[in-house]
Nucleic acid binder design. Structure first.
Lengths: 119, 119
DNA sequence: CTGTATCCATGATGATACTG
DNA sequence: CAGTATCATCATGGATACAG
């Protein structure tokens, strides 16, 4: 199981709105993809460049998944070199402030950790 | 690779504050554990009960990891049945509003999805 | 350029059994 | 009750090759 994915056990545990609702957090890159789309629509290649280390396969998968979940939208461009742009939906944009908080706390965590073990 | 873990490639890609800072998001249950601790300290067994589907092994791992990252703190209780309580640190509490946003957006996503495929 | 298909490595998780 | 060890399984992810 990857992230917040239940296969066939627990019938309907209503105790975790968080788990249930956080399915879109799947994978290590989901939030990053969203984050990269924060200001403008981006093309596949641009995202690939902005996300050092991501493979085309995974980027493709995350893009599709986020699109199917309604967080991002794909716009096809009818240019001679066939292209496409991805942009956040209204719902997707709602996540930005929260991602900001997460990143901020993460920074503090990293900073605190460096103080503890500076070497 | 699980979540935001880079092994030995990409030297130091500074493009993704998000990825770098979101290490604490590891695993499917990290946010849930934090969420369960939102109001009061909880014991191991209580958390296990509050997180239907989580295994003791994973809960233990997440607890240790979140503790080592500084998001939660463990308090040992010197009661006759040896017990321990886990509570959020200040940093951990900072995440609560953000988790709230995530859960909220997730709910809307689920709702929208149900409208699309009601059957 | 925009993706997708295979193959393979690693990590996360669950089940179960076991220790303090 | 609290927590850990082992085992098996599956999803995520990377590399590479390939297709539109």
């Amino acid at each position: 199981m990857g992230l917040a994915v239940r296969k066939n056990k627990a019938p309907a545990p209503p105790a975790c709105q968080v788990t249930d609702a956080l399915g879109f957090l799947r994978g290590a890159w989901a939030l990053n993809v969203i984050w990269q789309l924060r200001d403008q629509a981006r093309r596949f290649g641009e995202l690939r460049h902005d996300l050092p280390g991501i493979s085309a396969r995974i980027l493709s998968k995350r893009l599709h998944e986020l699109e199917s979940r309604g967080l991002i939208a794909r716009r096809k461009l009818d240019s001679s070199p066939p292209s496409a742009e991805y942009e956040l939906t209204a719902l997707g944009r709602e996540l930005l402030p929260a991602i900001d908080v997460f990143a901020s706390v993460g920074q503090k965590l990293l900073a605190a950790w460096k103080e503890t073990s500076p070497a």
